[in-house]
């Protein structure tokens, strides 16, 4: 599970990436590779450039210099679910899918995220956590080789967040896409991911495997040590 197998194909890669908005350089000389089945998090203070890097790797930002290769089928889950409020849940998931089995596949994935029976609901009839699960289903039904998660849990309440995190980890284990997740939450990252990439001031300050066995517990001594170290690198004292 942990430990990158170098024979696993690289799904997305960025080499020597630089991104500037006017005179303001957000990223400079960034290298990043993600392999199939790998769950990587981008950590960093706000303004560090981590979200920009996610957008570049996902092919959403065309203004970057350098060598970028995104997945052949990237999918994104944003901080807010971004569902079409005027389409029912099933139609949101099936949006833009081709093929005669599009709706059947969408129904299956909705079942996987725990929303069986809500296919005909309007997005506004769902709770925030349910909507985010629809967004996750919309991403997964495309069988992405690269799944980008842009702070996907940060708008959820504490309890909903825990179950959503467990759901994502479980689905990633089943579907095995390469995952790149941006988060502010060090503990969330350490519970979920295989590898931590810390972005600081437009550069990659750390890129390491989290070699802690699963299932992980918040009070695992190795995890606590990781946490203290990362918070130190982010310039925050661990309480």
């Amino acid at each position: 599970m942990t430990g990158t197998d170098l024979t696993t194909p690289v799904v997305a890669a960025a080499h020597g990436v630089r991104r500037a908005f006017g005179d303001h350089v957000v990223l400079d000389g960034v290298d990043l590779e993600i392999r199939r089945g790998e769950f990587v998090t981008l950590l960093g203070r706000s303004g560090s450039g981590k979200s920009t890097l996610l957008r570049i790797v996902g092919g959403l930002d065309q203004g970057a210099e350098g060598d970028v290769r995104t997945g052949t089928a990237p999918a994104v889950v944003f901080q807010d679910p971004r569902l079409l409020p005027w389409r029912r849940v099933l139609d949101n998931v099936a949006l833009g899918l081709r093929g005669p089995d599009a709706r059947a596949r969408s129904t299956e994935v909705l079942d996987e995220v725990g929303l069986a029976g809500r296919e005909r609901a309007w997005p506004r009839q769902l709770s925030g956590g349910q909507r985010q699960r629809v967004a996750l289903a919309r991403a997964l039904v495309r069988e992405p080789d690269l799944l980008l998660l842009d702070e996907p849990f940060s708008a959820l309440d504490a309890l909903t967040r825990i179950s959503a995190q467990q759901l994502v980890r479980r689905l990633v284990d089943v579907h095995r896409p390469a995952v790149l997740m941006v988060t502010h939450d060090v503990e969330e990252a350490l519970l979920l991911v295989d590898r931590v990439v810390l972005v600081d001031d437009g550069r990659i300050a750390l890129d390491e495997e989290v070699g802690v066995r699963r299932p992980r517990r918040r009070d695992d001594p190795d995890l606590v040590r990781w946490r203290t170290r990362l918070l130190g690198l982010l310039g925050v004292a661990d309480a």
Partner: peptide, 16 residues
Amino acid sequence: RDLVEVARVLRLRRAE
């Protein structure tokens, strides 16, 4: 704009 971006991410055709 966020929904327009979703359309792009989902690779919707223009008509879609």
